[in-house]
Nucleic acid binder design. Structure first.
Lengths: 336, 336
DNA sequence: TTTAAAAGTTGAAACGTTTCATTTTGGGAG
DNA sequence: CTCCCAAAATGAAACGTTTCAACTTTTAAA
């Protein structure tokens, strides 16, 4: 048994045609019927499978796309799932990288991804690596940004209407009678966090409510931050009656604190969260949330990226998607 | 500006050495000091980065590893995260695939992964594709199985002691006074499900309790199955006082039903689940669970696989890891 | 039947590395 | 100062595709 994989040359010999003809066949171009039959026979007889590496070397396209996210949490994993399907259907594979919100790791991962000669990169990162990203784009790596925007980068974008989503939620909170609304922000170094905060500020101002600095908690995206922010709010002399969390991780930290302090959401404290992980609907009461269109985000990512790779796209494009407000038990009428 | 990427040849010219020498340098072999200096200078001046594709073609190693799982749920995503880090640290990248428990998709994904010329595959699959897997192994693709075993396949394995984990949990349930214990199994086509069921059966028998067929619900791994199983158990004339779920997905379905029926875990029905997703500890009461050592699984996967690739390993090896029992409010003394 | 155009085939060159048989270098022993 | 030897350098061949200019066959029109 010969352990060398059969090559296009073996096929050509067996089918008695030139290698170029086999290549044409493999790439779906027109072939004389008689040749096609013999080539097909030879291929199946030899168990031939085109070597994607050799092909990639010649075409300078690896047919693989990188995904670089902060962490593989519920949100990004859902995106990953949909993405794998969409890409697979178009002949692309997905290479995964993560950076844990750390600039150094971000740059390393970016470097690792690029040196893999991926055809494109789907990127969720912070502005800290703006210049590095610009360098990659200049170096001809097409990038599609999502979740978080990097201003001025010549890239496609799939964004979510953070501002409107938050604004709608805050408006509903106000309609429920809440006036002192705590806001737990994520890292303001990320556009996502800034937009959500703005949605809150706009709505408060639009509806004529005072914005109090002590009710705006500005730190990072961590669960522990959600925890301490919630404690701080709850222990205030004049605490807010409701809290908005900029992400489900922060809200999760808040829930952790409330559970420990025997505070019941929707009763002792009303809460609303950006993002809607599966388990929000399993809690009692359910957590009111601003749900991102995860599936649509992933599909747009695939679509934008593939269309850029396969057609000759010039200008960067941006897709903006709307969120869905899910009212559950954790938000109710303010009691007084 | 010349848009062609610099090659090893450009470096060689600029440093005034032969390409072979540059290659030696790139691969960390000994180089005369004077040459080394000039090569380093040339590389940084040109911004040269070795083309991994060309290298892969010559060495027949892509330095990439595939991960094929049913779905990217909380469990597999956690594995993915750790894996990416471990592999990256050793110069490997991770290609992701999923199959949604469906035989056809499994085979397709396996095929897609293999044709990518990955160096190895980390696989969580069912016995339905045993023969396909064997074919890949025969075709020289090293496979490391995890989560679910495929008997007789010549592969490395990272398994969890499902049987002992379940047995311990059931023993604790019995210690709490439960005698009629419902068991919601996953797809018995998977060793994981079979082992967990055996852990239950063994323990019941060992402790002299009768095993009643009507208390063993055998279906698939779906959330809806957990839902209907729980309803069926709860609506029995003589219902069990506690239920064990073979996975957190099943338990989640159960919780969904209980929530709808206003049944409180740990009060109206005692429950224990295999797997311990983050949110179990956030529910009130917390869900008692058998926690898999997710991180250790991922680390073992990386270690076993990389050591097989880099050394000359002969026989298949198996790593078996133990679970951790997490007692929370959803399991308590049987009231009578 | 002839002819021109279209469609298909051919095979060598190229992609950017690593490998390896051969040659060169430099330094220590005599 | 020679000679020898290990260490390092050399450069052509090879990996398995795609591409493309040149050539051949088929098709359809006249």
């Amino acid at each position: 048994m010969n352990h060398r994989n059969p090559t296009i040359l073996d096929v050509a010999k067996k089918a008695d045609v030139a290698v170029g003809t086999v290549s044409r066949f493999l790439n779906g171009r027109n072939i004389r019927k008689s040749n096609r039959d013999r080539i097909e026979a030879a291929i199946s007889e030899l168990g031939f499978r085109a070597n994607v590496v050799a092909r990639a070397m010649k075409t300078e396209r690896t047919k693989s796309i990188g995904l670089l996210v902060p962490v593989f949490d519920e949100f990004n994993s859902a995106i990953l799932s949909v993405l794998v399907d969409e890409l697979q259907a178009n002949g692309y594979s997905l290479l995964t990288f993560h950076h844990g919100h750390q600039a150094k790791a971000m740059i390393e991962a970016l470097e690792a991804a690029a040196s893999r000669r991926i055809d494109a990169l789907l990127l969720s990162a912070t502005e800290g690596i703006q210049t590095e990203v610009e360098r990659q784009v200049a170096g001809d790596l097409p990038i599609t940004l999502f979740n978080n925007d990097l201003p001025e980068v010549a890239a496609d974008r799939v964004l979510v209407n953070d501002r409107a989503g938050t604004a709608q939620a805050v408006r509903r909170m106000i309609e429920f009678g809440h006036e002192r609304i705590g806001f737990v922000s994520g890292d303001l170094f990320e556009s996502t966090a800034r937009n959500r905060l703005e949605g809150y500020l706009d709505t408060m101002r639009d509806l004529g409510l005072p914005v109090e600095e002590e009710l705006i908690w500005k730190q990072d995206w961590s669960r522990s931050n959600g925890h301490v922010a919630t404690r701080a709010f709850c222990e205030m002399a004049n605490p807010p009656t409701a809290i908005f969390y900029s992400s489900y991780i922060l809200a999760t930290g808040g829930l952790e604190y409330m559970r420990g302090a025997s505070l019941v959401p929707g009763k002792d404290m009303h809460i609303v969260s950006f993002d809607d992980p599966d388990y929000f609907s399993l809690l009692t009461p359910g957590i009111t949330a601003v749900a991102q269109p995860v599936k649509a985000v992933a599909q747009s990512l695939a679509e934008l990226t593939i269309s850029r790779l396969e057609n000759d796209i010039d200008a960067p494009r941006t897709v903006t998607l709307d969120c869905d407000f899910k009212l559950r038990g954790s938000l109710g009428l303010k009691k007084d």
